[in-house]
């Protein structure tokens, strides 16, 4: 009884915090206090959070290193724009089409490649990500290398906010479900999981498909904010950008992914004029984090859940001290 009430209280608090965050930003935008420049970076932050959280499901929780996330983002972006700009359907349909297309692509690529082991899988996904880009560049219907321009701006703050929250909620709930436990068991010990009757291929593909679908969402949001999409934008360096966020935040930590995505976006703003330096810093982050804290800054999964609760509810959960 006590427990149930506490859970309700927590939920209510979450809703209030989120609503407050939403309203404050909405107010700042409406009154023009948050100018265009900051709005752009706020949008990038939201999109990066979606990308990092969804890649974390694959790389962090499932333990399958994918280096082709930008490819799925590209598919989501182009599929959504085909629906909205080229065929004239509403934005909502565009978003769903983008997610669906990316998820289907994730399935088609995931089924053969996920049989591969860790580092081979990484190279294969990197290859597929690049192939997606090259194929898109050679489809004249979507403008070839020039891509599509003149996309209406439909990614408003409410849309972005809701999409980001939904992504986090869906992925967190998935991880905490029985699916999630199966997925994590694959990461912890694939052979043992198999022996215990977990269909590892199924769960790996599932995580891959869900992750790809949300990358598609990020792509759709991206396309409808920046007016123009080109396949070149989604090259493997973009995948590495997302990987840096996941690695920095913690492989298997959703909060970590969120914080790291926000941090990296901000870092990008500070270093706008020093792109080469930015990449050098990214490189150092990858090396240093792997050597000194291979689980990422926010640590392993047990810590994640607890610290997640802490941050989420704004108070200490007693079990944290266990």
């Amino acid at each position: 009884m006590e427990d149930k009430r506490r859970r309700w209280g927590k939920f209510l608090l979450e809703v209030i915090v989120l609503a407050a965050l939403f309203t404050v930003v909405q107010y700042l935008i409406a009154t023009g206090l948050l100018n265009r420049y900051y709005q752009i970076n706020l949008t990038l932050m939201g999109i990066n959070i979606i990308l990092a959280v969804s890649l974390n499901l694959i790389n962090g929780f499932t333990g399958q290193l994918s280096l082709g996330h930008a490819g799925f983002m590209a598919i989501g972006a182009f599929a959504s724009v085909i629906m909205t700009t080229l065929l004239g359907y509403p934005f909502m349909i565009g978003i769903l089409a983008g997610m669906l297309a990316a998820a289907v692509a994730g399935f088609i690529i995931g089924v053969p490649t996920l049989r591969l082991k860790g580092d081979y899988l990484a190279i294969a996904t990197l290859g597929f990500g690049e192939i997606i880009r090259v194929v898109l560049q050679n489809i004249d219907y979507i403008g070839g290398p020039a891509g599509i321009s003149g996309i209406s701006k439909m990614t408003t703050w409410p849309v972005l906010f809701i999409a980001t929250v939904i992504t986090i909620v869906v992925i967190v709930n998935m991880i905490n479900s029985s699916y999630g436990r199966a997925i994590i068991s694959v990461r912890e010990d694939e052979i043992a999981a198999e022996i215990m009757g977990v269909n590892t291929t199924k769960y790996k593909v599932l995580a891959f498909v869900v992750g790809a679908g949300f990358a598609g969402l990020a792509g759709a949001l991206y396309a409808h904010y920046f007016y123009i999409i080109k396949p070149e934008t989604f090259n493997f360096l973009k995948s590495f950008d997302i990987l840096v966020m996941v690695v920095l935040g913690g492989l298997g930590s959703t909060t970590g992914a969120v914080i790291a995505a926000a941090f990296i976006t901000a870092l990008n703003v500070v270093l706008q004029e020093y792109a080469a330096v930015r990449m050098i810093i990214y490189a150092l982050i990858l090396i240093i984090v792997m050597i000194y804290r291979p689980q990422g800054l926010l640590g392993n999964k047990e810590l994640t859940r607890r610290s997640f609760d802490k941050i989420w509810s704004g108070r200490h959960v007693s079990s944290a001290n266990k």
Partner: peptide
Amino acid sequence: KPLRNSTRIAALITAIGVSLFLEYITLY
């Protein structure tokens, strides 16, 4: 060397880091 006993994924991520480092230090 510090990663010789960690997972192969950790080693690969480090290798990607080294790769980016060499590229962009040269670029810089």
